[in-house]
């Protein structure tokens, strides 16, 4: 462990998207598409600053799962997220998207504590997936 503070969060969630699994997978692993669905997802309004985050998609297993790595720093804080999402289709046009994410936060932002960070992260993740869902459903089949 390094000098300073480190907060770790474990988040899980799921949502249903009205699109075929193959289509959802294709769009979820397309960084340029994802970027259009995340308007202010990385903005940390709490400390009036933002952290620039780099996203990387790995371990693609079409059309069922992939890993999304996010890493960023700024305003005296560092953020690292490792998340895995999985897709389950029902053979029609509906896909169940489930995700698991482990976040590691260090620096000033860690000082906010896990109570606020967890609540804030859950709220933001909810907004992000709502944006992704809307983006996929609006992107046509």
């Amino acid at each position: 462990m390094k000098e300073g503070q480190e907060v770790q969060l474990h988040l899980t969630g799921s949502t249903t998207i009205n699109a075929k699994r193959e289509r959802v997978f294709q769009l979820l692993t397309d960084p340029s598409f994802i970027a259009t669905t995340l308007p202010d997802a990385v903005e940390v309004a709490l400390i009036s600053s933002s952290i620039k985050v780099r996203l990387r998609i790995t371990d693609r297993v079409p059309p069922s799962s992939a890993r999304l790595l996010a890493e960023g720093s700024g305003s005296g804080s560092n953020l690292k997220i490792i998340s895995t999402f999985s897709l389950e289709g029902d053979g029609t046009t509906t896909t169940r998207l489930s995700w698991v994410a482990d976040a590691e936060i260090t620096g000033l932002m860690a000082g906010l504590g896990s109570l606020v960070l967890r609540g804030f992260a859950e709220k933001k993740v909810g907004e992000i997936f709502a944006g992704i869902t809307k983006g996929i459903e609006g992107a046509g089949r």
Binding site: K2, E3, G4, E6, A110, G113
Partner: peptide
């Protein structure tokens, strides 16, 4: 108490928590 417990068990200074 919750906040100081978390701070004291996750923040390192002088080489220790």
């Amino acid at each position: 108490l919750n906040q100081v417990k978390e701070r004291a068990t996750t923040r390192m200074q002088h080489g220790k928590l």
